[in-house]
Amino acid sequence: MSLSVHVHPLQRVTLAEAAAWHRVVAASTAHDLPGVPTPDPGQIHAQLTRPALGSHRLTWLATGADGIPVGVAGLRVFTSPGQEHLAELELHVDPAHRRLGTGSLLLSAVVAACRTENRRSLIAAAAAAADSPGEEFSERHGFRRALTLDHLVLRLDEPAVADLPRITEAEHPGYRLTGWTGTVPDDLADAFAEAKNAMNDMPVGDLDYGSVAWDADRVRAMAKVVADRGDTLLTIAAVHDDGTMAGYTEILLPQGSGPRAQQYDTAVVPAHRGHGLGLWVKAAMVCRLRAEHPGVVEIETDNADDNVHMLAVNRALGFRSYRRTRELQLDVSAD
């Protein structure tokens, strides 16, 4: 154990502290996940200083004897009903300073905070690979494997993408497509919230993730959180003739992220499944991106490896697997 590393909590994160955090994350990501884009300094600062939906954040910075940042830890403490047992960990150690005890010191601070916050479950993500340092570290500290995610990327210049307008234009009797940017229109807010609740039956493996009840106020609050940190949220939805929102898909355009968009939720309400609506709304979103955001050249998404239906939809669109991650969970209720 390194005695020269000091771990201290960050209260109001300054620009300098956010820059230090970014340096550690950039070094860690480049080493462990080559080819995966690193959030830019502005995104990191927004992440650390802007409120998240249904949670609050605790952060720690580890520095060496010379004051150089060597590790960071962030804890998202969930506060929404149905998730009050849960916290989520992000931990990075600069590769040049690993195996000196820094990660263990940071994790000790995080676990103590979880117990103070009366949380019983701590979840974290790590690359799923035989030589994954994150997975090895997590399992050594008592985390168990709970879920495997398949990460996929769609290049918008792939030949298969040229055929998507045909899918978008196919008739779906009784349904129509609509879309918006940012906050849902008032006349669709209640229907959108109801559709959001369909995410509660998505496959989560053995992850003790809980569930969230959505209403119109919550979907508006989510859109505000995204806008306040400088990101853009695009939504395409399928609406039934009776006014029910049957399904939807969301894409996030991170501020300053360049050519890669991030898939957010895609869901089809159980009563409307079996009509190809998931493929329909996602194809329409790809067409919208190509028309309105030509600077976006690829979309990244992830699916639980047992989410057979959505994986089939994504592969039909042209998504291809490029890496896998593991969701890990630690019981922090015991001493």
Results as ranks from 00 to 15, higher is better:
114 C>V: 10
124 A>E: 05
155 R>A: 04
313 V>P: 01
208 D>A: 14
188 L>N: 12
98 R>M: 13
34 P>H: 08
244 T>R: 11
232 T>V: 15
106 L>C: 03
172 H>S: 05
225 V>H: 03
33 L>S: 14
253 L>W: 15
3 L>Q: 12
35 G>Q: 13
42 G>I: 07
276 G>A: 07
34 P>W: 02
248 Y>S: 01
66 D>G: 00
163 D>E: 15
161 V>W: 15
166 R>D: 05
178 T>L: 10
103 G>E: 06
332 V>G: 07
327 E>N: 03
249 T>V: 10
123 I>N: 06
70 V>W: 07
131 D>C: 13
103 G>H: 09
172 H>Q: 08
216 A>F: 08
268 V>M: 00
291 A>P: 08
273 R>M: 07
171 E>K: 10
224 K>T: 07
139 E>V: 10
105 L>G: 07
37 P>N: 06
146 A>Q: 12
54 G>V: 02
119 R>C: 03
54 G>E: 01
157 D>G: 15
67 G>P: 14
216 A>Q: 07
29 T>I: 05
113 A>Q: 03
96 A>P: 03
257 S>H: 10
162 A>F: 14
16 A>Y: 09
283 A>P: 10
245 M>Y: 02
16 A>P: 07
244 T>K: 11
279 L>N: 11
34 P>F: 01
195 A>D: 02
130 A>N: 09
235 T>A: 02
197 N>R: 13
85 H>Q: 12
128 A>H: 08
312 A>S: 04
258 G>Y: 07
88 E>H: 09
278 G>F: 08
202 M>A: 14
320 R>E: 05
321 S>I: 06
199 M>L: 09
242 D>E: 12
89 L>M: 07
269 V>I: 00
44 I>R: 04
23 R>H: 09
186 D>E: 13
87 A>L: 12
185 P>V: 14
278 G>C: 14
18 A>L: 00
141 H>Q: 14
333 S>C: 09
117 E>F: 04
144 R>N: 11
128 A>P: 11
83 Q>A: 13
72 V>D: 13
225 V>R: 02
185 P>Y: 15
183 T>K: 15
289 L>F: 13
140 R>C: 04
30 A>M: 01
312 A>M: 06
227 A>T: 08
191 A>D: 03
265 D>K: 00
320 R>A: 07
107 L>T: 02
184 V>E: 06
80 S>N: 08
75 L>F: 11
104 S>G: 01
149 L>H: 14
252 L>D: 09
38 T>Q: 05
29 T>Y: 00
29 T>E: 00
267 A>P: 01
293 H>A: 14
154 L>I: 02
276 G>P: 00
310 M>C: 09
89 L>V: 09
249 T>I: 10
37 P>V: 10
277 L>W: 07
298 E>V: 10
330 L>M: 04
154 L>M: 11
82 G>P: 05
207 L>H: 11
176 R>V: 14
91 L>H: 13
120 R>F: 07
322 Y>M: 12
51 P>N: 05
235 T>Y: 03
176 R>A: 09
283 A>R: 11
333 S>M: 05
